[in-house]
Design a protein around this nucleic acid. Structure first.
Length: 466
RNA sequence: GCGCCGGUAGCUCAAUUGGCAGAGCAUUUGACUCUUAAUCAACAGGUUCCGGGUUCAAGUCCCGGCCGGCGCACCA
């Protein structure tokens, strides 16, 4: 029977730090209790050396037949077993800081091993299905998830510091809206009703601003019933944030300070590398109108006012199938995506999105066919999306109706109308700017991993069958 | 969803033109009083992902399925 508690009072990392001064062969006289897993074991007759790892690091256990209680049993612990150790902090003759084991107890057995002690666990399927083993076998897995956690903490602290209140909004929704994505459908038995898992919290959060909370944010899971890839998990975590009295420029300034600040909090620097290539989070980020970037890429002036025919030809030339329902705005956005995304490495704000692809964004003050919207791109991928919010309920209704027309024309990427949201706007949304940031994508940048699954503890996998 | 690649001992990986399925580590047993992926010796360990087919003979070739990696599509 293993014990129910262990009187643990020291950690590997702090001991390594505190006893740096111990000379080879010196004994400190200090008695400590440590606990962790035995990762390596080297027995040598009447001596045994074990490498024990706890949540902070590693320290060697040094057992001697003359000193250690139940020495023979200690020399037979299995790799992966949890042990609790009492003993003196010493440094061995060969210079390894160690706990000279006086008393010890087996806290839990490991009935499976933790992979090859040199190569760890390489099989992705095993790593993701049994992350608990992966975390011990592969230190880089532990580091990636630790950085994600540190990132979320930094995001919250910076939002709180800027006066934002954290809120929570429904995941079960009668309609899936606030973004264009295919939803998951579920059923509530007692209400005998169908619900969609949310694809975005956006409309709920704006209703809270209508309700008088001037600065709100939510960090929450959203669910999109779409393909899985190294950059897409069916459920992912998004930061959405709304600030009354701000416009799109205020929000861009906040976004770059938030992201650069979080990198600084987690990594201690904004200058890093991503997948082997230098990458800088440092603000300010360039602001580049979408039409300007697209014009540079195609070598001629294009904008949302370019003829539909010309834009369609340019898009089509680049291998994109043009749909009949697409107007100049959608075509410009498609052209931008086809020609510019690949070149956007360091964070860049792409601004002035067409109203046609921005059903929730307020119109640009100097061009009725554009909106006060930006997306930031980093390492060739979209990182954030923000805009001055559309506050006019009449315009909002017509935008939703346009979406419905597109849907009727066969476009399956449209936004569903939300009557309750329009009614909320009728109560009055003050001028407001909003922001969405993919937390998994940001975590990938901060942890320097190329696959989104590395920053999700338990990524979505196909259940094993057969 | 489509294409390409992969799945061999608990883990990491070999296996020639189709010809007896192997190694290291882990496990088990033994030796060893300063090891560091300790070392040395020995034992044991297999539905070669699953199901069919071709063949005297299949880990290897063919068909179907399962799971994964990458790319495309979709998207953030």
């Amino acid at each position: 029977m293993t014990p129910y508690t262990f009187d643990h009072n020291a950690y590997a990392a702090s001991l390594q730090e505190a006893y740096q001064h111990l000379e080879n062969g010196e004994e400190s006289g200090a008695q400590v209790n440590v606990a962790g897993r035995v990762m390596l074991l080297r027995t040598q007759g009447k001596l045994a050396f074990a490498t024990m790892r706890d949540s902070t690091g590693e320290i060697q256990l040094f057992a001697l037949a003359q000193v250690t209680k139940d020495f023979d049993a200690f020399a037979k612990v299995h790799l992966g077993d949890w042990v609790g150790i009492s003993g003196e902090v010493v440094r061995t003759k060969r210079g390894e800081l160690s706990i000279k084991v006086a008393n010890w107890v087996l806290l839990a057995e490991a009935q499976h091993n933790f992979g090859d002690k040199w190569a760890g666990i390489a099989d992705h399927d095993l790593r993701y299905r049994h992350r608990e083993a992966d975390l011990w076998a592969n230190p880089e897995s532990r580091l990636a998830l630790s950085r994600r956690s540190a990132m979320l903490r930094a995001v919250r602290e910076r939002c709180w510091a800027a006066g934002f209140m954290e809120v929570e909004t429904p995941i079960l929704n009668p309609i899936a809206t606030g973004a264009t994505a295919r939803p998951f459908l579920t059923h509530h038995n007692a209400l005998d009703s169908e619900f969609f898992l949310r694809i975005a919290p956006e409309l709920w959060l704006k209703r809270l601003v209508v309700g008088g909370y001037e600065r709100v944010f939510e960090i929450g899971r959203v669910f999109r019933n779409e393909g899985v890839s190294p950059r897409h998990n069916p459920e992912f975590t998004i930061l959405e944030l709304y600030a009354a009295y701000w416009n799109v420029r205020d929000m861009m300034a906040f976004t770059e300070e938030l992201v650069a600040g979080v990198a600084l909090d987690v990594l201690g620097t904004t200058e890093t590398t991503y997948q082997g290539r230098a990458f800088s989070f440092a603000a300010p980020w360039p602001r580049r109108p979408m039409a300007e970037l697209a014009s540079e890429a195609v070598g001629e002036d294009v904008s949302v006012h370019t003829s539909r025919e010309r834009l369609a030809a340019l898009v089509s030339e680049r291998g994109v199938q043009v749909h009949e329902s697409w107007g100049p705005g959608r075509l410009l956005a498609e052209l931008f995506e086809a020609t510019c995304e690949e070149s956007l490495w360091n964070p860049t704000f792409v601004t002035d999105y067409p109203v046609e692809v921005s059903p929730l964004a307020r119109r640009h003050q100097s061009d009725n066919d554009l909106t006060e919207r930006f997306e930031s791109y980093a390492a060739t991928r979209e990182l954030s999306n923000g805009f001055s919010e559309l506050i006019d309920p009449v315009d909002q209704r017509s935008r939703f109706e346009e979406q419905a027309r597109l849907a009727a024309a066969g476009d399956d990427e449209t936004m569903a109308i939300d009557e309750d949201f329009i009614k909320a706007l009728e109560w009055g949304l003050p001028p407001t700017a909003g922001l969405g940031v993919g937390m998994d994508r940001l975590a990938m940048l901060i942890a320097d991993v190329g696959n989104i699954r590395e920053v999700i503890a338990f990524p979505t996998l196909k259940p094993l069958r057969d």
